[in-house]
Amino acid sequence: MRYLFLFVALTVANAAVASEGMVILQKRCVSCHEISGPAAQSVQELWQRKGPDLFYAGSKYNAEWLKKWLVKPRRIRPAGHHPIQHIQPGKKRDMVDTTTLRPHPALSPSDAEEVTEALMKLKASAEMMGTAVFKGGSISASFGEMVFDKFNGCMACHEIEPGYGGLSGPEVYTAAKRYQADYLVSFITDPQAWNPKTPMPNKHVSAANIQKIVQYLQALAKENWDEKK
């Protein structure tokens, strides 16, 4: 009987600790992030979402990176979450209106830990994940860049190093630090399964080249970009 009481007490205590992060999420994050799903079903609905959907965060982010980033957030998307809300015509091309970009709030280390723990429990459905997974391996940065840029044109929207590449998509030189390898494979394979209205196209990259692209992203992420900036 005593053991049963102890078990129940521990379970309740554990649930209380686990829900602390969810309380913070509900209080501080849901005004910008969707944590229950589904993804936006129209372009207008997409534009109303101020930050990335988090209802599959546990299948997307690397926990260690997430925990650190929440304490010291840094811009990942040079033109904001929805570039159309942060650009204006310039002399040579459309330019980012940096005055409209807002910094992400920083959390205390303990809150970041709680929130990360709660987010890592939010998993993607099997339909979103699909069946493709990262098979490991490595590639040289130069060959990887050929696959990424020359063969598939991904650099049109993504920076492969600070200040080099497209600005509408998130930087990719830190992507492998931020994201799980299986998520990267899955998202490149079928972006619309994750977000039907994402501006990221399905370029129908071959399965073999998707593996090479993720290997390339891992090679890029080995650089210490914060030091180089």
Binding site: V43, L46, W47, A79, P83, I84, I87, Q88, P89, G90, K92, R93, D94, M95, V96, A156, C157, G166, L167, S168, K197, P199, P201
Partner: peptide, 16 residues
């Protein structure tokens, strides 16, 4: 949503 990023806000091909 899809075209501005490259073809530009005014469609002149001078996108972000």
């Amino acid at each position: 949503n899809y075209c501005w990023q490259c073809h530009g806000m005014t469609g002149d091909g001078m996108g972000l």
